[in-house]
């Protein structure tokens, strides 16, 4: 979102395109970090060790956060770290630990639909790359002018220009939250219900003996 705004603003700057032949230090770092991120991502999906995959995912997500930082989108970068590294990966690790992920490689982790996954990945990557390249083309962000990706700019864009998608997303998340609560409560409510049903049959079955017992008493 910021990038599009920046893109609109930077159309005029595009004329003064510095070109790719004399890269600045930031650009070199950007490419290097990108390569490292790509490498980490590839290892994530190819490694046979489950927990290693999760930890390589940390590296990949951290690399993405560094890329955001290099584009001066500070807020997005820290949110990336906070949400993905701090919570999502912790959740992943939690799940892996619950399922007793072994220390060594887990051979049964390969599901056999490798080609399908590869095809899906390639297709989505191609779509995204085409989309991004087509959307921004020669758009040039001058990193020297600070504040493009600052918290204030991001916040204003989010709550002025893009407030409707934001609210739609909020509703989606709320729906997910409510769904989770309903699911967990239903599970809890079902068990006593089952118990009641079982108990009911049992009481009807034992009813006679109980009455007999009472009669004897």
């Amino acid at each position: 979102m910021t990038l599009t705004e920046a893109g609109h603003g930077a159309v005029a700057e595009a004329a003064a395109h510095p070109g790719f032949l004399s890269p600045t230090g930031v650009e070199i770092v950007f490419v290097l970090v990108g390569l490292a991120t790509l490498g980490a991502a590839v290892v994530t999906v190819t490694t046979k060790k489950l927990v290693h995959a999760a930890l390589w995912l940390v590296a990949a997500l951290g690399g993405v956060a560094v890329e955001y930082l290099l584009l001066t989108a500070e807020f997005i970068a820290w949110v990336q770290v906070l949400i993905y590294v701090g919570s999502v990966v912790v959740l992943l690790l939690f799940g892996l630990m619950l399922t007793k992920a072994p220390i060594g490689p887990s051979p049964d982790a390969d599901s056999g639909n490798r080609p399908v996954a590869l095809a899906a990945a390639l297709v989505s990557a191609a779509t995204l790359v085409t989309l991004v390249v087509d959307a921004f083309r020669t758009t040039w962000i001058d990193l020297g002018t600070t504040g493009r990706g600052s918290t204030r700019v991001t916040g204003e864009a989010l709550f002025r220009g893009w407030v409707l998608p934001f609210e739609a997303l909020s509703v989606l998340l709320l729906a997910a939250l409510v769904g989770a609560i309903v699911l967990s409560r239903k599970g809890k409510a079902a068990r006593p219900g089952d118990g009641h049903g079982g108990g009911g049959t049992r009481t009807s079955g034992h009813g006679r003996t109980g009455r007999d017992g009472e009669a004897q008493g």
């Binding site: 927990v51 930890l55 940390v58 500070e74 807020f75 590294v85 701090g86 919570s87 892996l96 630990m97």
Partner: peptide, 27 residues
């Protein structure tokens, strides 16, 4: 840091990864 509060909380959350790694890797 412009988003200082977020930075602090994000990085502190990373620290907990250390405990998780140690906990799993100890076998």
């Amino acid at each position: 840091v412009d988003a200082g509060v977020f930075f602090v909380l994000a990085v502190m959350g990373v620290g907990v990864l250390g405990s998780l790694m140690g906990g799993w890797a100890s076998a």
